[in-house]
Simulated scan of single mutants.
Amino acid sequence: MRAVSGKLAKIGVLAPLALAAMGLGGCTTVRDHRGFFVDTALVDSVLPGVDNKMSVERTLGRPTLASQFGDQDWYYIATDTKQLAFRRPQPTAQTILRVRFDAKGNVLGVDRAGMEKVARFNPDKDLTPTLGRKRTFLEDLFGNIGTVGAAGMGGAGGAGGGRPGPNGS
């Protein structure tokens, strides 16, 4: 009987610890990779004046996006993010690889960019600044009362409240 009660006492001590460990497990950081997987050996093998669009596609794969206007550029984008529980993902590393082509489809150059191209901004208290005056919730709700059907605004009685319109009809 004592052996059973001793085991129950140990379980009674370990159960809260196990629950706490499972609860803290939900607070771990989630790391994710999005987009192109950068292989430096393959990227370095793309040479200006030697490669063309077909050989670049065979080497690096299809681009993440291609320019629609102007110069013929292909973009390969890779982003690493981390996310704490219940928060938005934050970028930790980014690589933008741009392959420039001439009019014949031959490689002109390969450019790289990193985290300096990530735009960071903080909205101001979830408000969008607008021009004009600030209105309260009640002014927004009841602001149109009395303006609908006012004289000259196309209210009851036809165009202009029974008066002839601009063309005399």
Rank of each mutant, 00 (worst) to 15 (best):
T59S: 09
L47D: 08
L84I: 00
S55M: 11
T59H: 08
G35N: 01
K134C: 00
D71M: 13
T40Y: 01
T92N: 04
P166D: 03
A156Q: 12
Q68W: 01
K7S: 11
T79G: 00
D124K: 04
G6L: 15
V56S: 03
A159W: 03
T64S: 12
G105F: 03
P48Q: 02
F86L: 07
T92K: 08
L14C: 13
K104P: 00
G161D: 12
V50S: 08
R31I: 06
L84W: 13
T28G: 13
P48I: 05
Y75N: 08
R58W: 05
V148H: 02
K104R: 15
G143F: 03
R62N: 07
R87I: 00
G146Q: 02
L131V: 14
K53M: 15
I11G: 01
A156V: 08
G109S: 06
I145R: 02
G158H: 06
G168W: 03
G23W: 12
T29Y: 01
H33T: 11
D102R: 02
F37S: 06
I145N: 10
D126G: 12
Q90V: 15
G49I: 15
C27I: 09
T128P: 00
T79H: 02
V46N: 07
G25R: 02
E116M: 11
V4K: 12
G49L: 14
A103H: 01
A3L: 12
M1S: 08
V118Q: 06
V30T: 14
R112H: 08
S5I: 15
R88P: 03
T40M: 13
S169D: 11
G132Y: 09
T136P: 05
G158Y: 00
T40S: 10
L8G: 02
D102E: 06
H33Y: 14
L97P: 02
E139T: 08
F121H: 11
